[in-house]
Design a binder for these strands. Structure first.
Lengths: 134, 134
DNA sequence: TATCAATTAGTATTAGTTACTATTACTAAT
DNA sequence: ATTAGTAATAGTAACTAATACTAATTGATA
């Protein structure tokens, strides 16, 4: 019998715990280092694999923020982020922000906003056709 | 005497031309291949360097779109993009889109929208302090 | 408790990008 | 025109984040 179940291993559990208890949106490498304090023998591959699995399970979300490293967010509810162009730090933003952006891109959240980018995801007309029967 | 001027070399000019005349938002590799039709000996490094320089000069903008490849856009005016989650293709969106997104994420542009992400850029409070005197 | 896919640590590989190196081309001031 | 100094180039090496591979181990289920 094929089991498509995921196991909750100690490694996976601790990776998730670390992500849930921080608001720092760490990179895979940062997760690796914080988890290693509790599991000194964990490997980078395990961290990457579990981050991917937890993302699929929607326990975690990935932030692709314009830099080359992915960042991971233990808060899986839909929300927006703001990134510091100097240090790369990422903070959460309240959900009503889109409206504020529309008029003037000025938000009183301590940041000095210099820009923003928006990317939608979806299927283009061609792919919709191709995948139509799926 | 230090000259901080950029030269408009044939390589740079043709790279820019190729970007201006397409709406396909090509990757560095795609730029390389289309430019090579006119300059068969151009090297990948030259393409990357010039894309970077043209971006600094704001002739071109970079699209970091959630994949690992950067894409380049010869249209340097502020606008938004939509990316196909299947084929990676990126199209332009009209600027009034942010408002539309706010209510319901349904846009009649042929795409089937499955999600979107928004990232603001700016200086966080800490960095503002650090760089205050600059 | 026997089974067997899922998971693991460790390592090798990949892919995109950037850095380096020796050479050539351009620019501005003699 | 010649020189001096910088920018740019082709080609290649190096880097880095992420993924793939491998043999051994784990742990949920029958």
């Amino acid at each position: 019998m094929i089991m498509n179940n995921f196991r909750m291993t100690p490694q996976r559990r601790i990776i998730l715990e670390e992500l849930k208890k921080t608001r720092k949106h760490p990179t895979a490498d940062e997760v690796y280092h914080s988890v290693r304090k509790k599991l000194p023998d964990i490997s980078m591959g395990t961290v990457y694999r579990n981050l991917e699995i937890l993302t699929k399970q929607e326990e975690v979300q990935v932030i692709r923020n314009g830099g080359k490293k992915k960042r991971y967010d233990g808060n899986s509810t839909k929300h927006f982020h703001i990134k510091c162009t100097n240090c790369g730090r990422i903070d959460d933003l309240p959900e009503n922000l889109v409206g504020l952006i529309k008029k003037n891109i000025t938000v009183d959240c301590g940041y000095e906003i210099t820009g923003y980018s928006l990317v939608l995801y979806g299927l283009c007309p061609d792919c919709k056709k191709k995948l139509g029967g799926k």
